[in-house]
Write a protein that binds this DNA or RNA. Structure first.
Lengths: 319, 319
DNA sequence: TCAAAAGTGTTATCCTTACACCCATGT
DNA sequence: ACATGGGTGTAAGGATAACACTTTTGA
């Protein structure tokens, strides 16, 4: 543990959570490295890159073949000890450089081409406790709750955080607290990355989602939480939709993002009253049942007035 | 413009917007440097600092003498051309290093001691168009609107952004869009930093607030916008209050943050119904008029249930 | 005729907004 | 008395949540 002869360099890693809807699932673009699954990423070049965002767009285009539309910065992570495992991917030794990770969220329309199907993974693969569309996920009662209870035993602070994050003891589920939940599991040593970052040779916990390299699952959790909250106050959902869609299609998209079931009649009405969409008078090629009208996003409202997102009326049956 | 012999270093600068209420004004802790006014800041040490937040707390304590409570990360700025002027404060040449700026928001209670009074500046000093508590600021009609109109003349995109950001042509004022407004003025070359960053010797525009070093006014705009929105969905306002306060005191604090007047009776009711405060049964030392009851923040609710912020009912008279 | 999905009506409830008004204290 | 600020009542309007129901298509 002797200090290095010369000060460490700082290296900035840029990572993108590229989200899209594929087959009714909210999915994310992943890359396979020899250390495991990760997000598309690259090393920021202080000489060549004018801004982070331009650098990020270049990385994703180079690694996956398509160009990003909507992009926003999420968070910058710099904790010592959670940065090491990706170091060799940047071509340097973790002891010689400090890696700082800037995470971004990008949204791609459902029609996105250019990446092979195997490059997309549904989010539930990494966060199986986040999908409540078919009711409370079994993994919560079977794995998460007992593990957290034993971790929190006797500690009021821990118990209270577990209760609020994971909807224990009758607390309601808040779908936006994705990062809080992941960080709690990390702190409790219940996800693989926590064991790995401690240099542990201990067996990794199982059943709590697939791990990712470096801090990429942390960035992914940040992205999902941000998207879930943003959908409610900005019309970002339409960045994920094809140019024409039905209202049920929009609802399924909102459900895939939020991870909860919505109430159909009320969802329709709030969407139609929002002024965000316009009926096209044409019908969908029916896929069973009465054909639905096609709608489009009225993108022109963005320049005319401040505009909010969608209200997400949960269904009383399974919400 | 020949490339340097060896790749540039990346230097991470940490800056803190330390907000507090002083004399009824939302104020921010500033430091005076030989290049001008700035935020407390420091250079992140990749060898010595374990996390950004710990490093930031150490800087602020060293430079101002008190320790921070509530802290949150705002944004990371890395644009070339907006980083140079502070370089010499870090003891290096901007040509030799690329400066990346991580901004933080910290909240200090009104009782905060340890910094001299002259170290605090009201936010309106830097953003005189943001304070609508006494109606629409005159500077908007006198300076901002004509300047933006001539900048946007004939460009529909520019006009629409100016309209939405600065509430022109009957668009309503959205107090949260602080950063959008500052960035628009920067892009239009109407704030001093824009002229400075272009290496301009042109006379700096006047009347549009005092400049700050580096990108510190940009970070400050980010902080004010974040705080204004966060007050509505998290009980952060209480981080700025003394342990005991009256409801009008709380209202004045919310008004100072939001920059708009609120409706007293409705504000009282929403606060009391929120369950966030508890009456103490004791009265304030009256300052004219009927003495008001003292309240305290029920900090214990934070651990018991998910908890929102305050609703801010604007006054019909001057809102 | 039935399943599946689209789409409409209606009501109870809550929250927000706005206005009107009374109360307690100091000068 | 009156100014100043504290504090309450109440009603209109809108959004939300819940339930019940009709319509249109394909198999």
């Amino acid at each position: 543990m002797s200090p290095p002869a010369r000060p460490r360099d700082v290296v900035i890693g840029l990572s993108a959570v590229v989200a899209a809807l594929r087959g009714g699932e909210a999915s994310v673009l992943t890359v396979r490295t020899r250390d495991g699954l990760g997000l598309p990423f690259g090393r920021f070049d202080p000489d060549g890159h004018r801004t982070f965002e331009l650098a990020l767009r270049a990385f994703v285009t180079a690694q996956t073949g398509f160009s990003l539309g909507y992009v926003e910065q999420l968070y910058t992570f710099g904790d010592k000890g959670r940065d090491a495992p990706v170091a060799d991917l940047h071509g340097l030794d973790a002891e010689a450089a400090r890696i700082v990770s800037v995470g971004y969220l990008a949204l791609a329309p459902a029609t996105t081409q250019g990446a092979s199907d195997t490059a997309w993974s549904p989010w539930s693969r990494f966060f199986p406790w986040e999908d409540w569309r078919r009711g409370r996920p079994a993994i919560l009662d079977a794995v998460v709750e007992p593990a957290l209870r034993s971790w929190a035993a006797g500690d009021e602070g821990r118990s209270s955080r577990a209760r609020l994050s994971f909807a224990l003891d009758g607390v309601g589920w808040n779908e936006e607290r994705v990062l809080e939940r992941y960080e709690l599991l990390y702190e409790a040593g219940l996800v693989h990355e926590a064991v790995r970052d401690r240099g542990g040779s201990a067996p990794s916990p199982d059943g709590l989602g697939d791990p990712m390299i470096s801090d990429h699952r942390r960035i992914l959790a940040t992205a999902l939480g941000r998207l879930r909250s943003k959908v409610r106050y900005r019309p970002v959902i339409f960045e994920l939709m094809p140019p024409e869609f039905t209202l049920l299609g929009l609802q399924r998209a909102a459900e895939a993002i939020a991870g909860v079931r919505l109430h159909k009649p009320n969802f329709r009405r709030t969407v139609e009253r929002s002024g965000l969409v316009e009926g096209l008078g044409r019908l969908d090629a029916a896929a069973g049942g009465r054909p639905a009208e096609l709608f489009r996003f009225r993108r022109e409202v963005l320049g005319a007035q401040p505009v909010g997102g969608l209200s997400l009326p949960t269904s009383p049956r399974e919400g």
